[in-house]
Write a protein that binds this DNA or RNA. Structure first.
Lengths: 119, 119
DNA sequence: TGGTTGATTAACCATCAGGTTGAATACAAG
DNA sequence: CTTGTATTCAACCTGATGGTTAATCAACCA
């Protein structure tokens, strides 16, 4: 388990239950019990999921009496999104695709000498 | 291991090696050997990583002689980014935060009857 | 035919992730 | 001080992940 920020974030997002928890929290703070209510799994399992989200910095938790309300934190989401956009933009609909085609053709020509075979 | 598209994508992104592979592929197609070159792990391990990326739809692979060139596919990246933006936008810098504050205060007031205690 | 290169598959190992149940903690209310 | 409620911690199980090495497949070269 890599422990860099981005890996923690993506790893936390790689579970439908956790994504549902975040979706719920996007509507506002909630306690563990409130968050657990829609799921069929145990409260402890939800607690574990929340710990994962907390470790990734995706949520922070308050403390009011015996309640530990969770709040969504968007900073890691921003970083994750930025990473994706970076590499998506570097390729998508740009000249790179054509450039790559050309490069591939050149390599083929080079590797095969002058043998004009098609695949 | 959840097998829905979003989970597969985020899970694939949750590893620095795989993100590096994608970053490399954003610069253009590459073979397995080319991709493996910067890493200290075995070629087989890289092959496994590529299989994960392929299963997530993040790459596709051609076949030229004994080479299996990998190409980045951006569709899953777009979906992942869209998911993040959806829940980030629902909260970030909007009135929700204030709304939530108010809701929290109301709940506190309700739960405690009329007892004006501060945390 | 046989050898070399590129890549995958198979078998194995250690660790981790997600779930469970049961006990423990923290606080509120009688 | 005891009970109830909200939450976490601990121990445990199962299956997945990431790595290894050895063997195999596929295609080219000689």
């Amino acid at each position: 388990m890599p422990d860099d920020a981005l890996s923690l974030t993506f790893s936390a997002l790689a579970d439908p239950t956790r994504r549902a928890l975040l979706a719920r929290l996007a509507a506002g703070e909630a306690t563990v019990n409130e968050l657990a209510e829609p799921f069929d799994i145990s409260l402890q399992a939800v607690s574990k999921h929340l710990k994962v989200l907390e470790r990734a910095g995706l949520i922070t938790r308050g403390r009011t009496a015996q309640w530990r309300p969770c709040r969504l934190e968007t900073a890691p989401l921003t970083e994750a999104s930025a990473w994706i956009e970076r590499y998506k933009a570097g390729w998508d609909g740009r000249f790179d695709r054509l450039e790559d085609e050309l490069r591939a053709l050149q390599e083929q020509a080079h590797e095969k000498g002058n043998n004009d075979e098609q695949d």
